[in-house]
Each structure stands twice: as C-alpha cells, then as structure tokens.
Amino acid sequence: MRHVHYGLAFATLEKQAMAIVGYSRVSTNGQEHRLQLDALNAVGCDYVVSEVGSGSDENARPQLQRLLSNLSSDDTLVVWRLDRLARSVKELIAIANELSQRKVRLRSLNEQIDTTTPQGRMMFHVFAMIAQFERDLIAERTRAGLEAARASGRIIGRRRLLAPAQIVQAEAWLASKQMTQAQAAKALGVSRATLIRALSPAKEMSK
C-alpha cells in the first residue's frame, strides 16, 4: 500500500485500473492517522490519501475534493468511518449518490457498508438517518432541559453560560466524534465561540 500524505497532489499519482483507494482524515495535527491507516491497509488499499482538516470546513479538505474528482468507474473508495468523509448527513448522501452515478464503489469499514449492493445502499441510508435522528434527539433533549431550568429559575439572564455538566457533555460529544463543535454549541444553545472558551479552561485544569 502506498500512503499519500496530505499536501501531495493526487494528480501526481499513477492511476491504476479499478483502484482501491483509502481516505484518512484527522481534525488536528495532534491526532494520529495510525488507527485508520492500519484498517485501510488490512483491506488491501492500493494507496491511501490522508489529510488534516476539520470536517466542519469544506475548504479544509482539499485532498478529499481532489480525490473524489479523480476517482473513475469501477474504483473503490474506502473510509474507516463515514464521518471521515462528510460534514453532515446531507453531504454524505450527496457524495454517495454522486459516486454511485459514476459507478464508483464506496465502502465504510466501521459501519460495514458497501454501496455496490442493494443491501449496502439500504444500510447506508438507514445508518445516515439514524445518525441524524440521534443528533436531533440529543439537541432536542438538551434544549428541553435548558428551557426547564430557565422556567424553574435556575438559569437567569447571562449569569451562567455553560454549567459544568454541560461542559462535560460537550467534551463527550466531541471526543466520540458524535458532534462537531458547531453542532454541540447549537445543542447547548450557545455560540461556538462560547463553547470553545468554556472548553479551554477545562483542558488547562486537566493537564
């Protein structure tokens, strides 16, 4: 397997017929690709394109955009997990549909999805809908809890932006990749900047 580091133009690669191409992404330089690379290597990828970039910013994933545009009919795109590929369920489905129209196979190892089969296509849409439902449910429960707290007088005005329990919950969402910072902030009813400020002291205290 050839490993193509982020920053190297995909166009420079020698294109193989019916290539099996892996894609690995981490959000920050402090994170490791190793877990994803080991899994992609185990399924026989011809090469892997990897990059560092936030899943919430399309412009932060130039290697993915270049990779998608260079895939050909009968190629296979393999990812460790679906959230490595897209920022949202809507984008994920759009990418899958585009690849399907171009007869490019999509595999997700963690969810055991293969879109070349009817069962795989069905499972892809089911997993996507479940993931979106779970995020919406979490956000709804959080908003309901905040409204109940305000109604009982426990949260008044702007005296307290995020309670310690909310910060812990946000850290759990982010650590499990269940939500992005923007999604977690929305679920908690605060801005992304407020969430980041609340998380920073917590990180310092844990050092």
Rank of each mutant, 00 (worst) to 15 (best):
R107F: 12
L161D: 14
L162K: 00
V126S: 01
A128K: 06
S50W: 14
Q36P: 07
T115P: 09
A131F: 09
L195K: 06
I95K: 05
A19Q: 15
H33G: 07
S152H: 03
E14N: 13
M123A: 10
Q183H: 02
H3E: 15
G157Q: 06
V21G: 11
I113W: 00
R160K: 14
L161M: 13
R135W: 00
S88V: 09
L35S: 13
R102V: 12
R121C: 10
M129P: 00
M123F: 12
I167M: 06
L71D: 15
D75R: 04
L37C: 11
G189S: 06
I95Q: 02
I113R: 04
K177N: 15
A182Y: 07
S69P: 02
A96Y: 01
E58Q: 11
L82E: 03
E32G: 08
Q119K: 06
A151Y: 01
E134G: 04
R143V: 08
M129D: 15
H33S: 01
V126R: 01
E14P: 15
R141W: 02
A94S: 15
G189Y: 02
E134F: 00
K203M: 09
V89I: 12
I93T: 15
I196L: 05
K15L: 03
D38Q: 14
R121S: 12
Q132C: 01
H5G: 11
E147R: 11
Y23M: 03
E51W: 02
L99E: 06
D38S: 03
G157S: 12
D136N: 09
R154K: 14
A198Q: 02
W173Q: 01
N97V: 15
I156L: 03
F124L: 13
A86L: 02
N97A: 13
S108Q: 00
S152W: 04
S88L: 06
D75T: 10
M179W: 11
R192Q: 14
H5P: 08
D114S: 07
K203C: 11
S200D: 15
Q31K: 00
A39T: 11
V79C: 07
S152E: 05
S100W: 10
I155H: 11
G153E: 01
R84A: 06
K186M: 00
Y6E: 07
S191E: 10
S108M: 00
T142V: 12
L162I: 08
R154H: 13
T180D: 02
M1T: 14
D38K: 10
R66V: 14
A131H: 08
A39E: 12
S200F: 12
S88W: 14
L199T: 09
T142L: 05
A128R: 05
R197V: 07
Q65D: 05
T142P: 00
L199P: 13
L106F: 01
T28I: 08
R84N: 10
A175K: 04
L77S: 12
M179S: 09
L68W: 07
L195C: 13
